[in-house]
Design a protein around this nucleic acid. Structure first.
Lengths: 239, 239
DNA sequence: CCCATCTGTGTGGTCTGACCACATGCTACA
DNA sequence: TGTAGCATGTGGTCAGACCACACAGATGGG
């Protein structure tokens, strides 16, 4: 147990966190200008900036140059961005194995689907994404982006923000791998058609309240695709 | 689709991420000194530092002053720290509701327990923590810390690093709330005794392969405690 | 009177240079 | 030979300067 001296930017971060917890700061509020806050906390402006960078990447603030009410650092609390950055970098640094990402996604999404089927949640968002994926002339990347949004929208429909953020993070963390694995597919045409069919079946099972069916369909949908694209294998052989 | 000009620190971050993905950088490696990297990328040292702060908070690097092989920025890829910081701050900024944190924990942990029961995983770590919690004279905070470690160790036993990191993050994000809610309990003595009993039952179910039983016990264990401490209610009334 | 234009001001974004604290490793001296 | 002291390189921090940008108010022409 050493003195564990706190660095200046950590002090700034801790101060802001305290203000958030006490309610002195809340989403929509504007943080003081960097120079003012630096003077107020008796630290250099660079230390304030380092703390702000962290807050920005974590999705807590949004910064904008210029003047007026939209400029400065504003508290936003949009978790998906930070979750995505965290998971993406951890996967890049091999702190997270792609196989673990996939199985976590499987775990979360089957539970979400089961819960959605058990309740009667609003499914308009996934419905719209479903029809958007039927548009002709979509590129592979565009289709997969809509696909990702569809799955995230299911999590959002559950009303659990944390799970939704995790789903978004999990997805974006392996986005580059998924794109790179597309050529591994035997036929993109056939696969995308199957994905569309499966999406429709999943949504139908959810809307009709078939809990076990929804869970099963989601499980097969996800694991089937990853197996088909040989994603986990390729991820291991990237190095 | 604007030009979306990249800021200097984002450029640094992207460069490092690229090197990670390409395998040019991997855990254990040392990043170049800040001054060198700044000159190499034609940016200011402060921009490099802002990128480093982000990497540090996200658990990707560890920095140390001084000289020698241990000094500098070293890639470590320890995800739990970043996950904890992210969730803790998001909860503080009310981006994550405490109720969602709790239900996510419920979702993850019941699945983990079921999976552990279905396989025969190594349970020595949770066993040790179980006996550690039997030590007399533990303070409430100490007991709860061991409790948290017990649950995280279950996730770790599943072998899924992502889920383990999430569990650690979920737990630390509401740590302050949990501690503050202890006085709400009718009797800490009785509650802690019950927790110990339930932990033992959970572990026994897992080790004996009773899947449904393990899931059920974990569910009741978690939801019972939160209900008893009125945590979600208090969290809402903190402001 | 109204609208467009110009300008001042305050903000974040960045760079430079300087200094400190610290850990290491070498060197000179006893 | 061993130890004390010094040189070096690293992150940590601060101060100051400049830029780009967005807004608000002043200014001018219609």
């Amino acid at each position: 147990m050493s003195a564990e001296t706190e660095r200046a930017w950590e002090y700034v971060l801790r101060t802001i966190e305290t203000d958030l917890l006490s309610g002195a700061l809340k989403p929509g509020d504007r943080l003081p200008p960097e120079r003012t806050l630096a003077a107020h906390l008796s630290v250099g402006r660079s230390s304030v900036r380092e703390a702000f960078r962290v807050l920005e990447v974590l999705g807590l603030i949004r910064t904008a140059s210029g003047s007026g009410p939209q400029a400065g650092a504003i508290i936003v609390a949009t978790p998906s961005g930070g979750m995505s950055a965290l998971m993406r970098l951890q996967v890049a640094a091999t702190g997270f194995a792609v196989a673990d990402i996939v199985s976590t996604r499987l775990l979360l999404e089957t539970s979400v689907a089961a819960e959605l089927a058990a309740t009667d949640a609003d499914t308009t968002a996934p419905r719209q994404l479903l029809s958007a994926m039927d548009s002709p002339g979509l590129s592979e990347a565009e289709f997969l982006a809509l696909d990702a949004q569809f799955h995230v929208s299911l999590a959002e429909a559950s009303g659990n923000v944390v799970v939704a953020a995790m789903m978004a993070g999990l997805r974006s963390s392996i986005e580059s791998y998924v794109l790179r694995a597309v050529p591994n597919l035997e036929s993109w045409e056939r696969t995308s058609a199957r994905l569309r069919t499966e999406h429709a079946a999943i949504l139908a099972a959810i809307e009709s309240g078939q809990v076990a069916e929804a869970r099963e369909l989601v499980h097969d949908h996800i694991s089937h695709y990853y197996a088909e694209s040989h994603l986990t294998r390729d991820a291991a052989s990237v190095a």
